[in-house]
Computed example of a mutant assay.
Amino acid sequence: MPSIPFLSYEDDVIRSTPVEKLIGPSAGEMLVEDVEIDRSPMSPELRRRLRFKKMPNLVQTQVRLLPESVDAALIRPEIGSLVHPYLSHMVSTLFLISPAISDAFLSGSPPWVLCVGVGGGPLLMSLRCHLGLRVLGVEADDVVLSTARRHFGLVESEFLKIVIGDGIEFIKNYAMEISESKLFHAIMVDLDEADPMSGVGAPPLEFLEKSVLLGARRALHPDGILVVNTISSIKDIYARMIEILRSFFSELYELEVENGENCVVVATSSPIGSITKEMKHGHIFEKLKQLSCDRFIDSMRKI
């Protein structure tokens, strides 16, 4: 059996303060903690993190904490905080379908994005609050969802909805029950393998089953994309995943994350075609630029 290294988070933590310990039906024991990150000697950065006991060295969610006022001791989570290493990379992939997203806005019907795996919810809040997209999240553990609401700034609304359930089953069954007008412009999958010793990491192997990928393809808009956060310590597993995705989708793109652990894979419903100069001056590009996600666009490569 291969040796599986623990995934590690930044080791420049000055101090850690437990906020709450909880137990969820799917996630098991979990810890919410506030940590100070040594970003500079004069002004350490304060973040809130969620970790699961079954994967103690992997940070499930982290958001930046901001003071309520200059003098106040109170702090609040930054809305749509994208400090987690790979989230900005996932958001940046929307540039590939920026013309389709812009067309949807112009038609008066902002596009929907499906987020499978909510965690603390910073990805969902960023898509909704900063990009103006409509978001549907699927979270397996109601305790994780409650924690996201209380500690990480997740706020549901008419255009940000969350359902409790198995995300993989949701993808498999969704397209059988909806009309073409309710297709997703993007499906973003951020799910970990339940067994941390399997070497798979993310996504779970059952996500790659034919029925699931067919469901994802059917649930996507004709110009939509499937965006998957991947972690694997075994190269053959990653290569097999790419081979399977290639058989269901039109094109594949890859975006490696600087931490050396995550890699974001994008599968498209239709050929993207060439990236034009106009796309880098469009509405979506400007929104991505405001989030500092534009710096990852040129790193996306077709595979």
Rank of each mutant, 00 (worst) to 15 (best):
F249Q: 07
E177R: 15
F159T: 13
D223Q: 15
V189W: 01
N173Y: 07
P25L: 07
R48F: 03
G24Y: 05
I178G: 01
A104T: 09
V212I: 11
S81H: 06
E256G: 08
D190R: 07
G28N: 00
V116N: 03
S211Q: 12
P67Q: 11
P85F: 06
A194E: 10
P41E: 06
V135Y: 03
A194Q: 08
E278D: 13
L123P: 00
G199L: 06
G273C: 10
V13A: 10
N259Y: 05
E278G: 05
L288E: 01
A239Y: 14
L205Q: 14
E180C: 09
D11R: 15
L160H: 07
H89D: 03
P203M: 06
V59P: 01
P122H: 05
G28Q: 05
A73P: 00
Y174P: 02
E29A: 12
I284Y: 02
P25F: 05
R246I: 00
M90Q: 13
E286S: 15
C115I: 14
A100D: 09
M90K: 06
L106Y: 09
E10Y: 08
V59Q: 10
L133I: 09
L205W: 05
E68V: 14
G28R: 07
L31Q: 13
D11F: 10
H283W: 15
G167P: 00
S157G: 13
I171Y: 02
G260R: 07
E251K: 06
V118L: 14
S26V: 15
L7P: 01
S274A: 12
M300P: 01
I297R: 05
S270W: 11
Q62S: 11
P25E: 07
Y86R: 08
N57W: 14
P2Y: 11
F52K: 11
P25G: 07
V144R: 10
I231C: 07
I97S: 05
G224V: 04
A267K: 00
L22R: 15
L7W: 13
G24F: 08
T61E: 05
M300F: 02
P77V: 06
L226H: 03
A219F: 06
V212A: 09
S157C: 10
S3P: 02
V118M: 09
V265N: 03
I75V: 15
E78K: 10
Y86M: 13
V59C: 09
C115G: 07
V163N: 08
S102T: 15
P44S: 10
H221Y: 06
Q60N: 11
E156N: 04
V266F: 03
C293P: 00
S126T: 10
